[in-house]
C-alpha cells in the first residue's frame, strides 16, 4: 500500500521547469530511492513533499495515507510523521546536542537521547553537551540530525544525499540507522546520485529534468543509471545550463 503518493506534480520557478508532471507511489515500510543526475529535481521533490515555503506553488497533489497534504504547513506535515534530513544540516549556535534531539523526540527523556546517539555511533557522554555548531564535522552533524530523526520516530523520512560530505565510518553508521528505521516500519526515501546509496534501496525511481524516466527494482535502475546517466553530458549540468537546479 502506498503511504505517499505524488500525483502529477509540476513546479516552475520563473521560467525554469523543475518538476514536470511527476507521479510516484511510495509503499509503506520500503526503502525507496529517487535517483538522477545533478539538476534532475531530486532535492526539489523532497522539499515539495516536506512543504517548504519556497516549494508550495506546485501544481498536482501530494497524498499521505490517501489524504491530500498540499495545504498543510511544514510542521503540520511533520506531525503526521513526515520529515526530511537535509543534504547539509543546519547549525544551531548555542543549542546542545541534547536540546536539539529532545526538541523532536517523542519520548522526552535523557535515556532516549543516549539511545539515539548510540544508534548513530556517537558516544553520548562525549556528545550530549556539545553545541550543534561549526565545531562538529560534517559527518557528526549528519549523524546528529539522523539521531534527532530517530528520536522523532517518523512514519516517512527523506534523506537527501545521506553520504554527502561524510567519511566511510559515518556512512556505515548512517546505513545502520536506515536499517533501524526500516525495522521500525518507517518508509524511507533516499535522495541520491550515488550507486552505493542506491544499493540500500528496495525500489527506485529514476528522474531526469523533473520527469520520471523509469522505476522498478533497484538493480535494474542502478544498471541503467550507471550505464547511461552517469556518462551522460546532461543538459542540466551547471556549465551547460545555468538555470538548471536540483
Amino acid at each position: 500500500m502506498a503511504i505517499l503518493e505524488v500525483r502529477d506534480v509540476s513546479l516552475q520557478v520563473n521560467s525554469t521547469v523543475i518538476l514536470n508532471g511527476l507521479s510516484m507511489e511510495f509503499w509503506e515500510g520500503y526503502v525507496h530511492a529517487v535517483v538522477g543526475p545533478n539538476g534532475a529535481g531530486k532535492s526539489t521533490l523532497a522539499n515539495v513533499i516536506m512543504g517548504l515555503p519556497d516549494y508550495r506553488q506546485h501544481t498536482g497533489d501530494i497524498l499521505f495515507e490517501g489524504k491530500s497534504i498540499k495545504n498543510l504547513n511544514v510542521d503540520e506535515r511533520a506531525r503526521l510523521g513526515i520529515t526530511l534530513a537535509w543534504q547539509e544540516p543546519a547549525r544551531f549556535e548555542g543549542l546542545t546536542v541534547s536540546q536539539f534531539i529532545l526538541a523532536s523526540a517523542k519520548d522526552k527523556n535523557k535515556n532516549e537521547i543516549d539511545r539515539v546517539l548510540e544508534l548513530v555511533g556517537l558516544e553520548p557522554t562525549r556528545y550530549r553537551s556539545r553545541a550543534v555548531d561549526k565545531t562538529l564535522s560534517g559527518g557528526e552533524r549528519k549523524r546528529i540530525e539522523l539521531a534527532s530523526i530517530l528520536a522523532m520516530k517518523p512514519r516517512l523520512v527523506m534523506l537527501d544525499e545521506p553520504d554527502s560530505g561524510v567519511d566511510i565510518e559515518a556512512i556505515e553508521r548512517i546505513f545502520e540507522a536506515i536499517d533501524h528505521l526500516k525495522k521500525d516500519g518507517c518508509t524511507i526515501l533516499l535522495i541520491t546520485h550515488s550507486p552505493k546509496v542506491l544499493e540500500k534501496a528496495d525500489h527506485a525511481f529514476l528522474i531526469c529534468s523533473g520527469m520520471l524516466v523509469d522505476k522498478g527494482e533497484t538493480a535494474k535502475i542502478l544498471e541503467y543509471f550507471s550505464g547511461k546517466c552517469l556518462p551522460c553530458p546532461h543538459k542540466n549540468l551547471p556549465d551547460l545550463n545555468p538555470g538548471g537546479r536540483e
Binding site: 511544514v74 543546519a90 548555542g94
Partner: peptide, 27 residues
C-alpha cells in the same frame, strides 16, 4: 530559515522553533 525549517520538519510549531533558536543564541 534553514534552522527554522529543520525544527518545523521535526514537528515544532513556528513559535516553538523560534523560541528554541533564540534560546540557543542567548545561551
Amino acid at each position: 530559515s534553514k534552522q527554522l525549517q529543520t525544527l518545523m520538519a521535526r514537528g515544532l510549531s513556528e513559535d516553538q522553533a523560534v523560541d528554541l533558536i533564540i534560546q540557543g543564541l542567548l545561551s
